[in-house]
């Protein structure tokens, strides 16, 4: 591993940490555009986080303390997952063979902490939110595992860096169709895991329809800031995963070009999320599992094409 690549990776990580909230700003801006409104500034989330950080945390009196654990564990797990990803199309210096499994379960730990925290508050809304989150994420997990299986079969590699970076190059040579299926499946998983329309509505104030938002109703101040920041990081993780798998990044001669393209692509995902949210309504809960099963089916189809499609 050359020095330049470590530098590129490091700078990418730093950019991810700094720019993650900007994605939410971009999504909001795109949605405002389609709604015919001016909308909040793209920097609004920075102001909001700063505001929350200066506030006091209030904790439910029925809580046993788990609720305070959720925000730091959530952010930490996202940070760990992010540090395993090949950012800027450069392998992570922290990567190892088999880290792809660790990656998946790091995301799981963040969710576990959030769900336990939600149940800990004893509120019926948070209980409902937790139940919904687990229901949907179990189905989303099936899809993302199928995606990983496809990538591993395609690249015969077991580390995140190898899998994602090679996939882009390899697949477009021989199995473009299956890669398109995989990208769609990944996009669906990205929307589901990040609680976006059509799976969840991040802007709703209606407790009865919330998923993720319901689980964080009892968080306030710096705790809430950490939850929001963790959510932004998670969106970055999924956007990076999706774009690195889809784009043959190794083809860039200059590693710094790769970095620029990487960051630009993450924001392309934000714009896409904004467009999707503007163009469609949220699904009713009964239909959400179908959509997630569709993602799994697409990944399965991609595997099938890869094996037998020639």
């Amino acid at each position: 591993m050359s020095d330049a690549s470590v530098w590129v990776w490091g700078v990418s990580l730093l950019l991810a940490l700094v720019l993650a909230p900007l994605q939410l700003g971009v999504i909001a801006k795109v949605k405002s555009f389609f709604g015919g409104r001016r909308g909040p500034s793209v920097l609004q989330w920075y102001h909001d986080l700063w505001k929350l950080l200066r506030k006091e945390s209030v904790c439910s009196s029925t809580s046993a303390g788990l609720v305070r654990l959720a925000p730091p564990v959530g952010v930490a797990s996202c940070l760990c997952a992010l540090s395993l990803l090949p950012l800027g199309f450069m392998d992570s210096p922290l990567g190892f063979t088999g880290d792809i499994i660790v990656f998946l379960y790091l995301l799981g730990i963040g969710r576990l902490a959030l769900v336990l925290g939600a149940l800990d508050t004893g509120s019926s809304f948070e209980g409902m939110g937790a139940s919904r989150e687990l229901h949907f994420s179990a189905l989303a997990e099936m899809a993302i595992v199928a995606v990983v299986v496809f990538l591993v079969m395609l690249t015969h590699d077991y580390s995140l860096g190898g899998v994602l970076n090679t996939a882009g190059t390899e697949a477009w040579r021989g199995s473009g169709t299956s890669l398109i299926l995989i990208v769609i499946a990944l996009l669906l998983v990205t929307l589901a895991e990040n609680c976006r329309v059509p799976f969840d509505d991040p802007e709703t104030h209606l407790e009865l329809t919330m998923v993720h938002e319901a689980m964080v109703l009892d968080h306030a101040g710096p705790d809430l800031a950490l939850i929001h920041y963790g959510a932004a990081l998670k969106l970055w993780v999924f956007a990076a995963f999706l774009t690195t798998a889809a784009v043959p990044g190794r083809l860039f001669a200059c590693p710094w070009t790769g970095l620029a393209v990487h960051v630009a692509l993450v924001f392309v995902v934000s714009v896409a999320v904004g467009v999707i949210e503007s163009a469609m309504a949220r699904y009713r809960f009964l239909k959400v599992p179908y959509l997630l099963l569709t993602a799994s089916a697409m990944a399965a189809m991609a595997i099938f094409l890869l094996e037998f499609g020639g």
Partner: peptide, 16 residues
């Protein structure tokens, strides 16, 4: 109603 199903365009326009 549009706002509650997260269909933003109609929600925003109708408000105006």
């Amino acid at each position: 109603l549009a706002g509650d199903v997260a269909f933003l365009q109609t929600a925003a326009f109708c408000g105006r």
